[in-house]
Amino acid sequence: MIDAPILRHAETDADVMACFGVMQQLRPHLQSSEAWLARVALQRAQGYRLLAVWDGSKPVALAGYRRIDNLIHGRFIYVDDLITDEAGRGRGHGERLLDELRTLGRADNCNRMVLDTALANALAQRFYFRFGLLARGLHFSMDLQ
């Protein structure tokens, strides 16, 4: 009997390090697992958590998120990162992660779940629309360095 993949937060440094290969598919600018671990430590101080779909001891999909309060959305879940390992796409891992984030957000009295994606990322946009996420605005940014 094969165990089904489970959802579990990456709580330890070892867990976070195990997630590096999957996250690097989404964030290729992350050049080392040590730099990745330092970034996660910094973001954890800002409320960041990393939820993963684990197939045994191997993460196959990740959702980095935090709870934020602001004047636009009130209390909400912001999804910083959402990625499924390229070899495991199409198996429902992304939907499973978003379902769990929705559940966590509701339990924490959040008004909404928010995420950003690139304008050119049509496949992700289609996935988000199917899940029920709606485009409600444009996100503007400017490089400062």
Score class of each variant (00 low, 15 high):
residue 80 D to Y: 02
residue 98 L to N: 04
residue 64 G to D: 02
residue 140 F to K: 05
residue 122 A to S: 13
residue 73 H to C: 11
residue 123 L to R: 15
residue 91 R to I: 01
residue 6 I to W: 04
residue 23 M to S: 04
residue 26 L to C: 09
residue 37 L to D: 03
residue 18 A to F: 06
residue 50 L to P: 02
residue 114 V to F: 00
residue 20 F to P: 01
residue 86 E to M: 10
residue 49 R to A: 13
residue 42 L to N: 09
residue 2 I to A: 12
residue 47 G to Y: 08
residue 117 T to H: 03
residue 87 A to H: 12
residue 23 M to V: 09
residue 112 R to N: 11
residue 42 L to R: 12
residue 89 R to E: 04
residue 15 D to L: 06
residue 120 A to Y: 11
residue 37 L to C: 07
residue 84 T to E: 05
residue 21 G to F: 06
residue 1 M to A: 15
residue 28 P to N: 07
residue 65 Y to W: 14
residue 141 S to P: 03
residue 62 L to Q: 04
residue 23 M to T: 00
residue 20 F to K: 00
residue 139 H to D: 04
residue 63 A to L: 05
residue 15 D to G: 02
residue 53 V to G: 01
residue 125 Q to W: 03
residue 114 V to R: 01
residue 40 V to G: 05
residue 2 I to K: 13
residue 27 R to Q: 11
residue 99 D to R: 14
residue 33 S to R: 13
residue 5 P to M: 11
residue 66 R to F: 02
residue 143 D to K: 13
residue 95 E to F: 03
residue 25 Q to S: 05
residue 63 A to Q: 02
residue 8 R to K: 12
residue 55 D to V: 02
residue 139 H to G: 05
residue 48 Y to D: 06
residue 121 N to Y: 06
residue 82 L to D: 03
residue 102 R to S: 13
residue 31 Q to D: 14
residue 144 L to C: 08
residue 2 I to G: 10
residue 76 F to W: 11
residue 112 R to P: 00
residue 69 D to V: 15
residue 59 P to Q: 04
residue 111 N to I: 01
